[in-house]
Design a protein around this nucleic acid. Structure first.
Lengths: 139, 139
DNA sequence: TCGAACTGTGTCACTTAACGTTACAGTAGA
DNA sequence: TCTACTGTAACGTTAAGTGACACAGTTCGA
């Protein structure tokens, strides 16, 4: 899976944990241990899906688009990571004569898509609020 | 996910499709479109888990360790790919003061482990025989 | 209206993981 | 003892992931 999913979840949990739910890309990046440009790129995608609100200019930054209890990890996955379960490398060759060699790609594609669906169904049961609770109670 | 999973499944389906269920690493690699050394490395792991039998020397090669109906994709995943769902990159820093920054790694680890379990449960419901059937009926 | 503090986005460089290639020791049958 | 295999390690190459930088656009306050 994509590490952008990690960054998206971490960013949202970080915002949820702040009293005013507001932060700049620089402070988020510092908390995540990455660079601001990468955070901005991912937050930009989240904004297009209404998971965060962004404000440019002086005093701008990022705020949560809705309550932490309303943001499921499944939604974040769908927005950020759809298709990343499947490995980049493919076996076989669609133009070959052997049915295994020629058809395996289609079949494996289905398997990866279905597997991804089962991950999403699992992630749908967890929200940013749940993750924040776990972070707060982690030993 | 690991592309070694693809190679393992493809190899087993390829063997299952052969009348005598026997092939060399070279012919398997040709069907998969990769190199024999890579196939041998993965088959070696499968052998240690009794999914295939191997025979060295003249006339040697690989045969199925049991019936295609007995080999679930979940088992293959467990043997070949456990831990590969989690991205290599980690956010946060266990030594930091902020609870989000310091605890997120543990929490995300759990999330990835649980997600992997849900994938395995899904893959457990499918066997090499099922995959072979799909390959044979794919349009 | 100017400057400071932001986001949005593209590009390029660097690092690391994935994959391929080669080599060679070990094994088994003809 | 020769040939055809597997087992495994080492090394080179390619592709993906990540970081760094640059700069245009936006917003607000002085």
């Amino acid at each position: 899976m994509n590490s952008e999913f990690t960054i998206a979840v971490h960013s949202l949990v970080f915002l949820a944990n702040l009293p005013d739910h507001r932060a700049s890309s620089e402070s988020i990046a510092y908390n995540i241990c990455t660079n601001p440009a990468r955070v901005r790129k991912i937050m930009s995608t989240l904004r297009k899906n209404n998971l965060v609100r962004t404000k440019e200019g002086l005093g701008g930054g990022y705020t949560l688009g809705c309550s932490p209890a309303e943001i499921s990890l499944g939604l974040i996955y769908r927005v950020i990571s759809t298709g990343t379960l499947k490995p980049h490398w493919c076996s076989g060759d669609p133009d070959a004569d052997c049915i295994v060699k020629s058809n395996i790609q289609t079949v494996m594609d289905d398997i990866f898509t279905e597997s991804e669906q089962s991950v999403i169904r699992h992630l749908d049961q967890m929200t940013i609020e749940d993750v924040l609770k776990k972070v707060r109670t982690a030993h």
